[in-house]
């Protein structure tokens, strides 16, 4: 598990922790059944407050990524990949719709917009 806290980030620290753990679970870098470090250990290691890490874990729990088992700790739950894919597709659709609306504002036509998407896709870092 890797967690980087950025003090200049727009996101509150609990959200940064939550996002990073979530993304590592989704990418399969943290696998189902993994026991996460305790709230207090994580606070100590990352140098943030216990209240902050508690919030990160409870949001992960509410979102169905982990569950806390008394005496064992916080455990990563299996992810329903089909459902997640569905959610992400919906999100992509929203962003693209937003892009189309913005393009219309400055009268950018369809082919120019898709050229832009192509170019961005080409230049993205892996």
């Amino acid at each position: 598990m890797k967690i980087i806290i950025r003090s200049q980030s727009e996101l509150p620290i609990y959200a940064q922790i939550m996002e990073q753990i979530r993304s590592q679970i989704l990418k399969g870098e943290i696998t189902e059944g993994t026991v996460l470090p305790s709230i207090r250990k994580l606070a100590k290691e990352t140098g943030v407050s216990v209240i902050t890490t508690t919030r990160a874990y409870s949001e992960l729990e509410a979102a169905g990524f982990i569950t806390s088992v008394p005496g064992k700790g916080s455990i990563v739950l299996p992810q329903d990949n089909a459902l997640l894919r569905e959610q992400y597709l919906k999100q992509i659709e929203e962003y693209l719709t937003e892009a189309i609306r913005t393009a219309e504002l400055i009268k950018l036509d369809r082919s120019e917009l898709s050229d832009m998407l192509e170019a961005l896709w080409e230049s993205k870092e892996d």
Partner: peptide, 21 residues
Amino acid sequence: NIADYIYFIDSGKKVLFDTKD
């Protein structure tokens, strides 16, 4: 980073008391 709670005092009186987050 590390504080959980903040108690803020001025001229001997409480200004605020809350979690830092």
